[in-house]
Design a protein around this nucleic acid. Sequence first.
DNA 1: AAAAACAAGTTTGTATCGCAAACTAGTTTG
DNA 2: CAAACTAGTTTGCGATACAAACTTGTTTTT
Lengths: 98, 98
Amino acid sequence: MNEQLRAISELDRVIHEPGRLMIVALLAGVKECDFLFLLNETKLNKGNLSSHLVRLETAGYVEIEKTYRGKVPMTLLRLTRTGRKAFEEYRKGLMAAF
Amino acid sequence: MNEQLRAISELDRVIHEPGRLMIVALLAGVKECDFLFLLNETKLNKGNLSSHLVRLETAGYVEIEKTYRGKVPMTLLRLTRTGRKAFEEYRKGLMAAF
DNA sequence: AAAAACAAGTTTGTATCGCAAACTAGTTTG
DNA sequence: CAAACTAGTTTGCGATACAAACTTGTTTTT
């Protein structure tokens, strides 16, 4: 098996999914942001965004903090250290493949 | 929506799947090859390889030619022009995103 | 020459996934 | 106080990816 194919086959599936890749790429560029910002930027719908975030949280890649802006609920998202590392690995994998 | 996210969201899902990405990347580098070669190179199992190939054929990206090597059946695979173009687009999309 | 093993794929069964629609809990507005 | 809005979550379901089992034909073994 050549190196390109190995790199492809080892890509992290959790991150590879385009919906989540958008989320992670975006979070990688900021310290944190809220649900609605992600919603706007990614153009995912709320349902998908919510479940992708849960999946990323379950993988240990994202922290979900529920809080308030005044009386209005707000959900803050950030990449964990693990998440950042996983994203870096993913990038490297891609670069190795292409 | 920024350009990175747009690029990610527009990635061709048929090609994006790692199993198929391996197949297409491999086929992009040769004129044609047979099923068993793909099987060896990708380390997919026969069942998955077969169904990914059908999916790629259905998308119009791959041609499947069934023939014989002596008396032993052999399946030849090649990328169609459409398939080559789609792969090039996919690469460009990736490069735009990363 | 029949049985057993092998070759090259295909089909099937199933668990997971991604998606949009429907729902929920609370808040603000008319 | 009812209607509409906000910020998400849950549900329902079709599509997907995977491995195991199956198929069809060939070669090897006995």
